[in-house]
Design a protein around this nucleic acid. Structure first.
Lengths: 207, 207
DNA sequence: ATTATAGGCTAATTTCGATTAGCTGTCAAG
DNA sequence: CTTGACAGCTAATCGAAATTAGCCTATAAT
């Protein structure tokens, strides 16, 4: 991999653990295997490295998001996918989202970095909220609205349904970011949450 | 207020906005209205100031927690309080918790500081998780278990109930920490969440 | 009245960390 | 071959920022 790219990787790695201010350019250089001044052949300053990470991650997120929305508008296409959503389907979807957010190397590191730096810059705060709250909530709200419309789920406020479905995943994700060793303890809880959620909102009363 | 105490207040205020590393002792001194070297008459280092904040906040939290538990064990006493919990009672409780966490000056600033510093020190990570996840969840789990036992709520996994009840409050709190101006948008959502939650778990099927 | 202490100040000191200067080897294009 | 850009290095530079030294005043206890 090019040195330039490697610098971004190592910098993200370090920033996500210690925050921008506590990482020295010499640390980044060492992680890359070069000396600090050599970094300046690739980026004009420490801040420039940070900005490059930001740009890269924003692009990558937008690509992902575009992939999810596929079509023009919102989760209409996925309506098909979820029209027949079963409890197991919901579990699979929730777990998939959780596992991806939690384990994707770049996603996780970027999230940790944003967590640390969010109060330093309003743009970072916006980004965090968009990627980890607003976007997932609005996507899922659209999905639940459709599942209600299709008669699969009860007709309740879909924003609330999305909030109740997603926020446990979010909260547990933040816990696991702090304590990766506790993940095993939470996996079953998440699955139970989704099944219980499904049971509560499912239309058919009897079985 | 004593200078010594004022230093802690101003330091917490600054740390909660910019993080430890980005706050200079000169900033703290200026906020207090003295010169940087004078700080050293009260604390032996910048780190010492941070530690003092930590100690103070831990004590304060323990006092609060002791007050909630009142009795010896867990939320048994509150069982009484919640034995007859109505939907409105749950709303009042949830909103109260949310408003307290979000608006109490010290609680909020301390939480922001922990948010920024959580990955720098495992002790801080523990503290954050305890105060904002483990403790609330275990308290509420006990409460819901009792409400189920009392026949008020359905008999579902109380850990999951606590997770579903609390995590929306937690997630929205983290959003409001970043964007205080959005609070108004979320208050109604929280209330709807709690009422919908209550409706879903309430025992009486018909009305 | 004397003195010790607390708490403040200014002026160093010291250390650290980002960045710049300037040199060097490599290698591909001409 | 030879030249220029690239990517590395070592050795400055330069500016913070924490902390220390040493001085001063008020005040409270002796």
């Amino acid at each position: 991999m090019s040195t330039k790219k490697r610098i971004l990787d190592e910098a993200l790695n370090l920033f996500s653990k210690k925050g921008y201010a506590n990482v020295f350019v010499a640390d980044i250089a060492e992680a890359v295997g070069i000396k600090a001044p050599s970094l300046y052949k690739h980026y004009k300053s420490k801040q420039d490295i940070f900005n490059a990470i930001l740009d890269e991650m924003k692009q990558s997120y937008d690509r992902q998001a575009a992939m999810l929305d596929m079509n023009g508008n919102n989760a209409e296409a996925d309506a098909m996918v979820f029209a027949d959503v079963s409890e197991d389907g919901l579990v699979k979807m929730g777990m998939g989202l959780f596992m991806y957010f939690l384990h994707d190397e770049y996603v996780q590191k970027f999230r940790k970095m944003l967590t640390i730096e969010q109060f330093a810059d309003p743009e970072l705060a916006e980004l965090f909220t968009k990627q980890y709250s607003d976007d997932p909530l609005s996507y899922q709200s659209a999905m639940f609205a459709m599942l209600s419309a299709n008669g699969v789920l009860k007709e309740e406020n879909p924003d609330v349904m999305a909030l109740q479905f997603y926020s446990p995943l979010f909260m547990i994700m933040t816990i696991c970011d702090r304590h990766p060793e506790r993940e095993a303890e939470f996996i079953p809880l998440i699955e139970q949450h989704i099944r219980q959620f499904s049971g509560l909102y499912s239309k058919e009363k009897d079985k």
